[in-house]
């Protein structure tokens, strides 16, 4: 896959489909037992090319936070519980920014102000902040050095709807203003619907469909995507929603052929034997399905809109 400048690329897929493993590779956070067995990830940071799968520790350190930042799953895992927020900012951003103490402090305070966080959070310990504030702080850490590329793993999953919307809009505004790229991972399709420019769907460790956000919601060309977007209930609509039967396959011993075939309503014999390639099915739209052209949306979007207005 390719991620453009100034673009939010959403990655969706069910739990244990490999989202986190994949973006750890993108983020150059590759630690045993995780190991890259093939392929490459090439970044172009203002003309400077770097492959996150092969770069040395020192090369990664030089781009970390300044060019490439990573918001890990669960904000608490980045925020050290026994360190005040200001110390954590120092740990992350002091050396990449290369500012003296005063200038650094000013820069951080200005940045927090921009994220609508009071200065007082700098003196706080993580547990003294609400979930929403912690998530803003994490976004603050990831954006303070104005990186060109950000990777965010489920950054809003634990938040309630009001705070979630606020945090998402903040993240998007910061991204637009910096012209940065974001790879945004979540299993929540309604989040993707509102933040992603394009979406990639992962199933059992493979990218099975990719396309502009609107296209994936209205004209999915992979049965798994069709299922994902149809399973979302909508306020105002009580029609039964399908749930996907079966379980995610074991990645240690995945099904032969198309990995979705044991759960796929369109599966034919060929699907059990041959792996479908990821092929172009429309404008910037790719799908890995032998029957891509026959996939229909499971819930008519018009009907949903009408229902929601009732």
């Amino acid at each position: 896959m390719q991620v453009e400048r100034d673009e939010i690329y959403g990655i969706a897929g069910e739990s244990s489909s490999g989202k986190t493993s994949f973006i750890k590779v993108l983020a150059a956070a590759i630690r045993p037992p995780l190991r890259v067995v093939g392929g490459s990830v090439e970044y172009n940071f203002a003309g400077q090319r770097i492959d996150s799968t092969k770069a040395s520790e020192a090369e990664i350190k030089a781009i970390r936070w300044r060019h490439l930042s990573y918001i890990m799953q669960g904000s608490m895992s980045v925020l050290n519980p026994v360190r005040r927020i200001e110390k954590t900012f120092g740990d992350f951003a002091r050396s990449p920014l290369g500012l003296d103490c005063r200038a650094f402090r000013e820069r951080i305070e200005e940045h927090l102000d921009h994220l609508k966080l009071p200065k007082s959070v700098l003196r706080a310990y993580p547990h003294e902040l609400s979930g929403g504030m912690r998530q803003r702080v994490t976004i603050g850490l990831a954006t303070v050095c104005r990186p060109e590329f950000m990777i965010a793993d489920e950054p809003t999953t634990a938040l309630d709807v009001v705070v979630q919307k606020d945090v998402l809009s903040l993240l998007r505004n910061v991204q637009k203003e910096m012209g940065a790229s974001i790879v945004f991972v979540t299993h929540d399709m309604s989040v993707h619907a509102n933040i992603a420019d394009r979406i990639g769907i992962i199933y059992a460790g493979r990218l099975v469909e990719e396309g502009p956000t609107r296209t994936l919601f209205t004209e999915p060309k992979h049965p798994y995507t069709a299922h994902l977007v149809a399973s979302l209930p909508v306020i105002g609509d009580t029609r039964p929603r399908p749930s996907l039967e079966g379980r995610p396959p074991s990645l240690a011993d995945p099904p032969q052929g198309c990995r979705f075939h044991p759960r796929c309503p369109l599966a034919i014999d060929r699907c059990k034997r041959e792996v479908p390639p990821l092929e172009t099915v429309g404008t910037r739209h790719r799908s890995a399905c032998w029957r891509a052209q026959e996939v229909e949306p499971l819930v008519r979007p018009e009907a949903t809109v009408a229902g929601a207005g009732a």
Binding site: V161, M189, S190, A193, T213, R214, F217, I235
Partner: peptide, 19 residues
């Protein structure tokens, strides 16, 4: 407010995040 904060999928791709 709660209802207004629910992310809608009906306008997917419009980036509708205005609080």
């Amino acid at each position: 407010l709660l209802k207004a904060s629910v992310l809608s999928v009906t306008d997917a791709g419009q980036g509708n995040l205005e609080p």
